[in-house]
Design a protein around this nucleic acid. Sequence first.
RNA 1: GCGCCUGUAGCUCAGCUGGAUAGAGCAACGGACUUCUAAUCCGUAGGCCGCAAGUUCGAAUCUUGCCAGGCGCGCCA
Length: 552
Amino acid sequence: MVKQQISAIVKKAWENCRQSGFLPPDIDVNIIIEIPREEANGDYSTNIAFLLAPKVRKSPTDIAKTLIGNMEFHGVCEKVEVAAKGFINFYVRDDMWRAALQEISDQGLDSLVPDVGEGRKVLIEFVSSNPTGPLHIGHGRGAAVGDVLANIMKRAGYNVVKEYYVNDAGKQIDTLGQSTYARWKELTGDAVPLEEHYYQGDYVKDIASLIVESNVAVPAEKAEAIAFMSKFASDFVLDGIKKDLEDFGVLFDNYFRETRLYESGEVEETLATLKDKGYAYEKDGALWFKTSMFEKDEDRVLIKSDGEKTYFASDIAYHKDKFDRRFDTLIDIWGSDHHGYIPRMRASIEALGRGKDSLKVLLIQFVTLIKDGKPVGMSTRAGQFTTLKEVLNEVGRDAARFFFLMRKSDAHLEFDLDLAKKTTNENPVFYIQYAHARIESIFRVAKDEGIDLASVKTARVDLLTEKDEITLIKGILHFFDVIEGSAKSLEPHRITFYLLDLVGRFHSYYNKTRVIVGDRELTMARLLLLATLQQVIKDALALLGVSAPERM
RNA sequence: GCGCCUGUAGCUCAGCUGGAUAGAGCAACGGACUUCUAAUCCGUAGGCCGCAAGUUCGAAUCUUGCCAGGCGCGCCA
């Protein structure tokens, strides 16, 4: 749209300068078109002259002036000037903004989102919480980030699959079985001492009593009984996790079980391959992976001296499986406490013959819940963690999702439960939803006055001459840049900030300007603007998985 | 001890991958409802961008060294 046109103008000017000999043909710089912070500095600007200056030994001002002299504007700009010794500032004609609005209204949002993904296959793996206990608040944040990132990337043209890796093998599942067994013994008469490493949460008791109540046949032999409990309890917990995620609006395309990798022989196969390639070796009765060959990290154990395979071993097989399914890029979303795991994982990706960049890890920092102005304590060990479900019940899906996305994922997040529940202007979720409802309300009034909303598409956009109207259109257009930037940088939080900005422009406009006025044509033009705006708000909210109410 | 993340207004945080005079919300103060939803808006005030060097036309952003907080450093997952 407008930005692309500016970009094209700059490119063409550069090309012209090369042909005239003013600029050499062999140098290259990255053209960045940005929106200046100060409105007085134009609608767009570029610093290209600064970038070229040292390479061609000319002054930035000279370069900027000559570039401008070589520009072909085709009526896009009303003014272009050199500022601050080399910036080129573009002042776009209002007609162009109106034309862009018209284009969006005619074509719809979808077709105008830049295709940065070009259909590349991306697998986003997130949550992947062990089925040994309910999801807590930190998982909720990871779930929101993963789900929304998937939405954004899909919109930007990627082919995205959302996957949950279920660690249903290994020690922790065994521990869950033992914990359940102990509770079950408690219920059936003879108490067994609870060991310290057992899962202490009440849900374990619940599962034990469920086993008692449902009268299922528990094997008599202890080891078998524990195995049974492991399966029963982890299945139960996983079902609960799925339910919580569903309530949270997060639907996975696939739940991938770790045990499957063992059953299919992929773990063995992967280890054999690593050995063949010389990336794994035996020492002290264990099999080690040569992390140090690829990363600044120590070698790590794949098979312990007792013959057990480590989590790392199956995780490599898992990532190999992902590549075998022809994904170009793997995105893993982990709790930030796992960051020490990144080097070895990246090393294993290289050992599998893939580029380092084909794995991207997003770290999710911890969430602190705030209630009555004070942090809510949480300790998983003691089983007092605050679950996602509790938070959902407390503040609802919309607020929960939005609040999780109000920060960069690698920054600590303070989640103010009281604020999330407030239905006032302090609560950003309501601020945005209110704008949507307000626009809808205007439509209702318009309808009452006999205006046919279906015909606003043909309204005269040239009547939108108010400064605030142009400001709104610019905000609408920015949507496309934000999606692109958000998808490329893997930063879903940008959408929330964008929405707050956009909606702020609307509320300001609303308070200053009446939409439904005596002049019917003007009214129609403004309704067209608001219809498009509302569509953007609704669409952006949909990316976040937050509802857009028509009435509040 | 080593590594990663964080440090920006009283509070919570943005800052578009190095740009122009540092941004928002909340809290504080002062204003705006006979008019499409006041869950809103307008205005005022608030800053050594943790500290110190360096890189260059230009640094909150990049480098190095400190300081403070968080998290990691298992033949755990």
